Amino acid sequence: SELMNSSKLIRMLEEDGWRLVRVTGSAHHFKHPKKPGLVTVPHPKKDLPIGTVKSIQKSAGL
């Protein structure tokens, strides 16, 4: 199965306009000026399962 580095996923979010608002432990929480909701990324993780990545991307509207 495909894995993604959390840094790469965070870069994709930031390029889309998401900004880090809070860190709780290894959970990084992002908000967007125009899009609704809060997106949480486990970080640092070298090997996020593709299912997790897809669900984060979906929440972020990517």
Rank of each mutant, 00 (worst) to 15 (best):
S1C: 14
E2H: 10
E2D: 12
L3R: 10
M4I: 09
M4N: 09
M4C: 11
N5H: 10
N5E: 13
S7C: 14
S7A: 14
K8P: 03
L9C: 05
I10F: 02
I10M: 05
R11I: 09
M12W: 08
M12N: 05
M12Q: 10
L13K: 00
L13P: 00
E14Y: 13
E14G: 05
E14M: 11
E15G: 07
E15Q: 08
E15H: 10
E15T: 07
D16N: 06
D16E: 06
D16Q: 05
G17Y: 02
W18E: 00
W18S: 00
W18P: 00
R19Q: 14
R19L: 13
R19C: 14
R19G: 07
L20T: 07
L20H: 04
V21Q: 06
R22V: 11
R22F: 12
V23H: 06
V23F: 05
T24H: 11
T24N: 11
G25L: 12
G25W: 08
S26P: 08
A27Q: 13
H28F: 07
H29F: 13
H29M: 14
H29Y: 09
F30K: 01
F30L: 06
F30Q: 00
K31W: 09
K31F: 07
H32G: 00
H32R: 01
P33F: 08
P33V: 06
K34H: 13
K34I: 13
K35F: 03
P36A: 09
G37D: 05
G37K: 05
L38G: 06
L38C: 13
V39R: 01
V39P: 02
V39M: 03
T40Y: 11
T40M: 12
T40S: 14
V41F: 03
P42N: 05
P42T: 06
P42W: 03
H43F: 04
K45V: 15
K45L: 08
D47H: 14
P49E: 08
I50N: 10
I50G: 07
G51W: 11
G51N: 15
G51T: 12
T52D: 08
T52Q: 11
T52Y: 07
T52P: 02
T52H: 07
V53D: 02
K54C: 13
K54W: 04
S55V: 07
S55L: 12
I56H: 01
I56S: 01
Q57L: 15
Q57A: 10
Q57N: 05
Q57I: 15
K58T: 10
K58E: 14
S59D: 11
S59W: 05
A60V: 04
L62V: 08
L62I: 15
L62R: 04
